[in-house]
Computed example of a mutant assay.
Amino acid sequence: MEPKEEMPFMLWGLDPIFSAFARLYIRDILQMTESTQVPGIYFYNSHPIYKVDILGIVVYKRERDDFFCYGVDDSTGVINCLCWKNDTLKEASIPGDSRQTAGAQGGFDPVAEMRKLQRAQQSRCRVEIGELLRVRGPVKTSRQQREREISASVFYKVDDPVMAVQIAWMMEVPELYRQCYDKPLQLQSNNTSSASVSSISKATNIIRDFLNQKSVAKFRPYDVQDLLQPLVLSQPTSTSEDQEPVAGPSGCQQLRQLLKQALKTLQDEGFVFRKVKSEDEVYSVTVHDKELVIAVKDVIREDSKREKYAEKGVHVLHILSAVRHRYSLNLTKEALELVLKSLECNSDIISCSDSHYTMLV
């Protein structure tokens, strides 16, 4: 990233990713560009990042008096993780009075219990090659080899006999990329545009919350128009004798314009769509449209049985084309993705990859 393209460091705190542990692929951590303003801060797609959260297999290890050094591989790359030992790990045993230990037989022995806790902690922090390790901490560049590494603030071995943790991780991280990391941060340039966006955002949230709470499947614009009335400031109906009338949209016009923009935003998100475009504006709420959900399930169920899709699953674009032909030509990809996500959360279907789906047997 060129210096002129970097966001000024005074604005970094406006990006929520800056204060979070970013769950990035190791490949991207190694390729991030270091800031020219503040050393130790890196940029991924204009997002300032300095601490990350990774999960991977240990492929090499070294141990020193003060730290462990693990090489972690998440299948996209390998990064060195410097994991510092705490005082408990450095101690060979917990100091205690042997007479107290002997006198505590038959009752609660605090020294013995502390030893158990110490052994449990050591077993979680001493990771062997081939075991699963999770590491969270800031990204650093080593002085000696000038290689990028993670200085762990938290690290522990993950017990994952049925790979449940790894599967959940592989499903969550691509979604974070789509929703956060691959979308550049956009800051409003002036207060007017900020106020406008804020009003549209509030209107969109009001309509969305109402439709969800009432489980509405279909509605017309005038059904939700009154919900936005508190957001609209009506123009003054009269002026003083010394003032000229101020031209501007009336309260009713502002309300209709705000409603139009909010419905467009919901359509762009896929939350609502129009099954048939006609003078009678009828909007369908995507996840509450039972006929649409049934059509999507039928397409996936039928095509999953075909030899062409038996192994990889049915591609999302094929599902979109089939559902458009069967149900509505106006269905958007965003609306379909919301239905697929809802079906997957309900364990009706399963994603074979980012864009392939099949029925859950």
Rank of each mutant, 00 (worst) to 15 (best):
D65A: 06
D65V: 10
D65E: 06
F67Y: 15
F67D: 04
F67H: 13
F68P: 01
F68V: 11
C69I: 15
Y70S: 09
Y70Q: 07
Y70G: 08
Y70M: 08
G71F: 07
G71T: 08
V72F: 05
V72I: 14
V72T: 12
D73L: 04
D74H: 09
S75V: 15
S75F: 15
T76R: 00
T76G: 00
T76S: 10
T76V: 06
T76P: 00
G77K: 13
G77P: 14
V78K: 12
V78Q: 07
I79C: 03
I79F: 06
I79A: 04
N80F: 02
N80A: 03
N80G: 02
L82I: 15
C83A: 09
C83P: 00
W84N: 08
K85T: 00
D87H: 01
T88H: 01
L89H: 06
L89I: 01
K90A: 02
E91K: 14
E91V: 10
A92W: 06
A92Y: 08
A92C: 08
A92F: 14
S93E: 09
S93C: 07
P95T: 04
P95G: 04
D97V: 15
D97N: 14
D97W: 14
S98F: 06
S98R: 13
R99A: 12
R99T: 13
Q100F: 15
Q100V: 13
Q100G: 07
Q100E: 13
Q100P: 01
A102Q: 08
A102G: 01
A102W: 11
G103M: 15
A104Y: 04
A104M: 10
A104K: 02
A104L: 08
A104S: 04
Q105P: 05
G107L: 06
G107T: 01
F108G: 06
D109A: 00
D109T: 02
P110V: 01
P110N: 00
